[in-house]
């Protein structure tokens, strides 16, 4: 990596790369959505469903698990919103090694 060129950037994890499409494709939104749906289902099950106290030892497990899942879901949505993902505009091709049979890189048609 030729790190010297980018010494101006303050944060190698996120700001090294130029801002590009944030995109709908942020895994945190996926995690938030799935856990949120689970949270809703479990909370409803906890309130209306069979509480199965004999199995859980007298705690409404679905309700508590559902509420915790909703909290975690909110955390992921919030995080994705506060610090959106940045996709690098250009990735250095890894084919500059003379010992490697180099592929001819052609831009791929979409």
């Amino acid at each position: 990596m030729s790190d010297q060129h980018r010494l101006g950037a303050p944060d190698p994890d996120e700001k090294r790369v130029r801002r590009h499409t944030a995109g709908a494709f942020d895994i945190r939104n996926f995690i938030g959505a799935l856990l949120g749906l689970y949270g809703v289902i479990l909370t409803l099950m906890g309130i209306f469903g069979d509480k199965a106290y004999d199995k859980t030892g007298n705690i409404d497990a679905n309700l508590y698990a559902g509420l915790v899942l909703l909290l975690i879901s909110a955390f992921f949505f919030g995080w994705a919103r506060i610090k959106p993902i940045i996709v690098p505009e250009h990735v250095e091709p890894a084919d500059e090694d003379p010992t490697r049979p180099a592929p001819r890189r052609r831009p791929r048609r979409r």
Binding site: Y38, L42, M45, K55, T56, A61, G66
Partner: peptide
Amino acid sequence: RDILPNGLLGV
């Protein structure tokens, strides 16, 4: 099988 109620069982 023994301790999870339906719902959490699915998860």
